[in-house]
Amino acid sequence: TFEVERIVRKKIVHGNTSYLVKWKNYSSKDNTWETEDDIRTKYGDLVDDFEK
């Protein structure tokens, strides 16, 4: 199971928000862009903290 360590960046393309996710126990080269809906479902607190 993958676990988010932190959110690195945010991008908005054509009105759709995605977050660059750093995965726990993986290197930064393994970071992936994930949709806001996918990340918010399980890691809403991390998204809220990133947006502060």
Rank of each mutant, 00 (worst) to 15 (best):
23 W>P: 00
35 T>I: 08
31 N>P: 07
35 T>P: 12
36 E>Q: 06
52 K>T: 10
38 D>G: 05
24 K>V: 08
40 R>F: 04
8 V>P: 08
39 I>K: 01
8 V>D: 02
35 T>E: 11
23 W>D: 00
32 T>Y: 02
31 N>C: 15
48 D>V: 07
23 W>E: 00
6 R>W: 09
39 I>V: 11
45 D>F: 14
28 S>H: 14
12 I>R: 06
22 K>Y: 04
39 I>R: 00
32 T>H: 02
48 D>A: 12
47 V>I: 13
21 V>S: 01
51 E>M: 05
32 T>R: 03
43 Y>D: 04
31 N>A: 10
18 S>W: 15
37 D>L: 12
15 G>Y: 03
46 L>G: 02
5 E>T: 01
38 D>W: 15
51 E>H: 06
20 L>D: 02
33 W>G: 00
47 V>A: 07
12 I>H: 04
31 N>R: 05
22 K>M: 05
31 N>S: 09
17 T>A: 10
21 V>T: 01
41 T>Q: 14
52 K>W: 06
12 I>F: 07
48 D>T: 08
7 I>F: 00
14 H>D: 15
8 V>H: 02
45 D>E: 12
41 T>Y: 11
48 D>I: 09
43 Y>W: 15
50 F>R: 04
48 D>W: 07
42 K>T: 09
5 E>F: 04
3 E>W: 05
20 L>Y: 06
29 K>M: 12
14 H>Y: 09
47 V>F: 06
14 H>P: 02
48 D>C: 06
27 S>I: 08
34 E>P: 03
12 I>W: 05
23 W>K: 02
9 R>T: 09
17 T>I: 14
18 S>V: 15
4 V>T: 01
37 D>Q: 12
28 S>M: 12
24 K>I: 05
35 T>R: 15
32 T>V: 02
5 E>M: 05
44 G>D: 05
50 F>W: 10
11 K>I: 08
10 K>L: 05
7 I>S: 00
15 G>H: 08
52 K>E: 09
2 F>H: 14
52 K>I: 09
34 E>F: 15
38 D>M: 12
19 Y>V: 01
12 I>N: 06
19 Y>P: 02
17 T>E: 02
28 S>E: 15
26 Y>C: 15
44 G>H: 10
46 L>K: 08
6 R>T: 09
50 F>L: 01
9 R>Y: 09
9 R>D: 15
24 K>D: 03
17 T>N: 05
49 D>N: 12
4 V>P: 13
39 I>F: 07
44 G>V: 07
25 N>G: 15
25 N>V: 04
37 D>T: 10
3 E>S: 05
42 K>V: 08
52 K>D: 09
23 W>Y: 09
49 D>E: 15
34 E>R: 05
